[in-house]
Design a binder for these strands. Structure first.
Lengths: 189, 189
DNA sequence: CTAAACTTTCAGAAAATACTGAAACTTCAA
DNA sequence: TTGAAGTTTCAGTATTTTCTGAAAGTTTAG
């Protein structure tokens, strides 16, 4: 595993960004390494390439597995495990977003839910309660939307993103043609 | 600033989540406190409510300002600064997302851009280069889309989100009516 | 101008997080 | 069943991040 300087820089960058993306430096570097490598790598390869301890590699592999970002490949007649990125860039990104949603949104949503539930009888300042409700509703909206998006076919999702806010225009137009849509204010500009 | 147990729990929760959301515990707690408070609070109020040092409050206020999540209010005839959340829940969320994009996406995008540029003449393994290109394109697509969304009126954006993947159906239909869309290879399964 | 009221800074302490490496564990070919 | 090849665990250490509190800085009423 010899790395060109440029590749090395990129991998170091992914390491630095790692913590901002929800994992640690090692996990970030290893993800980059596996994404950029055109063949599966063994744990020893990885440790050598990145000059990190074998134990650290093992931990990071576990983490990457738990995020479903890598998978293991075994050659018959070779006891070693080989690891590779678990899909296309698009799929990996989806996976990262999915996992981050789980860690960054879901806990708060469930906390809010139970809090709003429990304080039905009320022991909380009006304004605070209202704000909690708004956060709750926003996160729930986001969650449903996100779920929906994840189930769209990649090419549709991509097309949709390319359309950007253009989608607003299209919907306005369509709205006039299809009175079936619920009359939630889809409004105008 | 007396806090009910429930509110206190919520604030502690926001503190815990803080680091996952891109800031630290104190910043998270203070944001929650100000969002739930129905009146502006002084730095001393905050320090007392959360039992943290005055210096820490000052740092966190700076951070919250830099995220544009709070603003300062001054009473005439009172030297104290009072702080409050800078907008509705919706606006605050937008602000958080905007700032996180800056920290989590933009640096990598610019790194990729310059790397792809520089290695035009090529010194990098084919596969690595290709993956870099894909990440670059994905982030750029995301960036444009995100920008576009941020400029939509909140009620439009909300309506759009409520529509969820339903938007796909509408667009498919519309697509037949509007052959203007560019015929970029939108891939296959 | 002065000093009281308030805010910010920052060096060092504390806490949280990540990493190493050796020991324990697992797997499997013979 | 054994032991070589490989993997995982985890106690201790290193690194990074956050927090405190006292000193320095700023503002403004008088």
């Amino acid at each position: 595993m010899k790395l060109t300087t440029e590749l090395e820089n990129m991998i170091l960058h992914f390491g630095e960004m790692g913590s901002r993306w929800g994992f640690n430096r090692t996990v970030g570097q290893m993800l980059a390494l596996l994404v950029f490598s055109d063949e599966p790598l063994s744990a020893d390869d990885i440790a050598a390439s990145l000059s990190i301890s074998r134990g650290n590699v093992s931990m990071a592999l576990k983490e990457l597995h738990s995020w479903r970002l890598i998978r293991t490949h075994r050659e018959p007649g070779d006891r070693k495990d080989y690891f590779l990125a678990n899909g296309t860039i698009w799929e990996l990104s989806q996976q990262v977003l999915e996992e981050r949603k789980k860690r960054e949104v879901d806990p708060t949503l469930s906390m809010l839910r139970s809090q709003l539930m429990a304080s039905e009888q009320d022991e909380m300042p009006q304004h605070a309660r209202q704000q909690m409700q708004e956060i709750h509703d926003l996160l729930e909206l986001f969650n449903h939307w996100f779920d929906d998006m994840q189930h769209m076919k990649p090419e549709h999702l991509q097309a949709l993103m390319r359309l950007g806010s253009g989608v607003g225009k299209v919907l306005e137009m369509t709205d006039r043609l299809r009175p079936k849509t619920k009359k939630k204010a889809i409004g105008n500009d």
